[in-house]
Nucleic acid binder design. Structure first.
Lengths: 223, 223, 223, 223
DNA sequence: CATGAATGAGTGTTCATTCAT
DNA sequence: CATGAATGAACACTCATTCAT
């Protein structure tokens, strides 16, 4: 029977046996690692735990990833896929006020990133940037830059259409991004220890941000 | 009667040898600790290293600080939380528009914290919070809470005087804090690896933030 | 079908190389630990030393025993407390006078404990009890209690059968135990330095004890 | 004024100033050390604590005793004075049955030693004998030997007067001593952790011991 | 391919002892 | 004489990584 051995990471046919296929090991490991890295941080996560959660032995993990650091890199790379292409297209097709566009941007980001496991990645990157300069650059190029550019494009559109005041777009993009970033950093770090003292409702938070972005705090804005 | 014998632990003349004075030890240790904690993180910094950099032995460090965590707390108190009393007073005496107050707040923060070594502390806490809950709670109570409260007071003043629109002060304070936080996180983390790609001029950045905080991006704000 | 491949972790032939077999590790460690604990005391014994003497690394020790204290408990269980079940059964089956039972108890204890390395454990516990309350409680529960109970049962049997006079069994058990305890304490402590001054022949000592236990020193006992 | 400096440890006159005299330092230190050694054991007692309790600084302690070990030796030597001369005389003058003599011995020992701070010394010696061979020999010669001899003399008297059966006096003395020793070891070591499980009333305990010593457990003893 | 037993480097903290004042 | 600041050796336990089976 011509049962050829499939090259790793490639499924011979679409209807492959679901569970415990050799080719799925890396994926299971990456998923387990993401969970644990996000939950406990890089240093506090033990490789054995990752292996256990993926249902394999510690030795097996090192069969697929030569070191814990390489595992980390693989996790980050795996989880910051190029969704920006799709998003850019979405925004190009967008019709409506730029304020609506900004609103759409904020809430969509929350729905697809902020509220998911992936929201732990920025915190991880921020913490481990020093230890993984290569990854930091990668993250900067593949995530931060495209993200900033996307926001900049929205701001430019707003200015071009006379909806927004002229501004420095780089700083502008930072100012849009900052509260979003702080929201997920809070969620995954300091916020964990506030108990009920500071309860952040993402919807209200983003709504407040949008309002501030558009009108600022000053009274004259209401005119 | 001529008290010829100098009192113990007192140097014969007031202009004693500058360096290695006993009462400077804690200060030297705090400075060394701040440097190393910011540079390498809390966990990765070895107490012996701190002691060495301060020019004393490991044992001496524990003479002044009962534990590594207490050393960290002392560093934070020395550089941040200990100053809130002074800052609160400053703001109580402040006369002028609340916009000026906000400007004063931002630029003063930059001068006294943001532009100094102490700006590494927020990044540090973000990274280590999970692994050192006690420190996280301390930071939350001694730094975040007072900081947020200080900002909230400014916002309340603005609303009370009719300068600012009504708002939720908690979210408002977050929105003021976020760009400042991101500025120093950036400076101590991802920003390190961007080279010249993204050059943030703090003065311009904070000016842009202030403008946005007051007027927002929307054109109607100009009316 | 001929299963040619030896099951993992099993040596090709039954008579595998004698030493360094995986399943002997705990035993080797326990033996090394007993030696060192008795020789140097619990606190003064370094785990690395135990590991070295057992021919393994420090890490390996912690593979089998989660902590130094648990190692100690295992040593005690292996050498003393684990045997009470067997001893209790022996005594339940015992037929004969209670005096013979007491004799059997004393000389058997000497043969199986008193004359072995394990006799150092009581001295060890006496010395370290204050500093390791957890171990003290463990020893109290696992060794002293069962031991006292065993002796009490013998005494109760003697009284029940009319062989012994009525007595307070708690104090009675103490009085039986005391000379045995002192014998091994002596052996492992002060006795070490007496040279030939006081030569204790255990057989004669225990014989004398038994005689005293039965008849006392008083002459009327001979009637 | 001829105020000659008194040699250390010697008081110029009987009516010396009571408190904080230089010459009393060693005594205060020895007392403090005894308390703490008995309470916490040798290793667990910190010299600073001893110094504090004696009201001097750590440095001063080392002025009088070159090391912690020497301090220990001094403590033991100080506290096992030659009371045996007095006791021997007492026993020579004793008139009455030898059983009464034994009773007197036991309860007197309890009153003068067993119930006092000094009862901690045997436990200390037992624990530290290995570390202080010199002291162990000293203790053996100055305490154990005289004590055993004293008991032996009682036993010999009993036999000589026809009150006691013939016996090996060395073992006999051990058998008398053992329960007394165990009583104080229990008091200062393992017994500490039994809570209410085993409550030893010294009076009852010694009474039971005396009864056993005289008559044994066997029924024939009653005849 | 997979296993899991074995390894050993790395670190905060204590405390007896010293010595400049 | 007395002080107390300074020292530095000592030690249990973790966990990433290896490798014989």
């Amino acid at each position: 029977m011509p049962q050829t051995i499939a090259p790793r990471h490639t499924l011979p046919d679409g209807k492959a046996r679901r569970s415990r296929r050799k080719d799925e090991r890396p994926g299971e490991l990456l998923a387990a690692a993401l969970d644990l890295f996000v939950e406990k941080g890089f240093a506090a996560t033990r490789v054995e735990e990752v292996a256990q959660r993926a249902g394999v032995s510690k030795g097996t993990l090192f069969l697929y990833f030569p070191s814990k650091q390489e595992l980390f890199k693989a996790v980050v790379r795996e989880n910051i896929s190029g969704r920006f292409v799709e998003w850019n297209e979405e925004f190009e097709r967008f019709e409506g006020s730029t304020q609506d566009m900004l609103r759409y941007c904020l809430f969509n980001w929350w729905e697809r990133i902020g509220s998911t496991q992936a929201s732990g990645i920025p915190k991880l990157m921020m913490s481990e940037a020093q230890n993984f300069p290569e990854l930091a650059i990668f993250y900067q190029n593949e995530v931060m830059q495209p993200g900033m550019t996307l926001i900049e494009r929205i701001l430019r559109r707003g200015v071009a259409r006379g909806e927004f005041r002229p501004m420095d777009f780089t700083y502008g993009a930072f100012l849009v991004l900052a509260p979003m970033l702080v929201l997920v950093l809070w969620k995954h770090s300091l916020g964990t220890f506030c108990g009920d003292q500071v309860e952040l409702d993402p919807q209200k938070y983003l709504t407040a941000q949008l309002d501030m972005l558009m009108h600022g705090f000053g009274v004259q804005a209401r005119l």
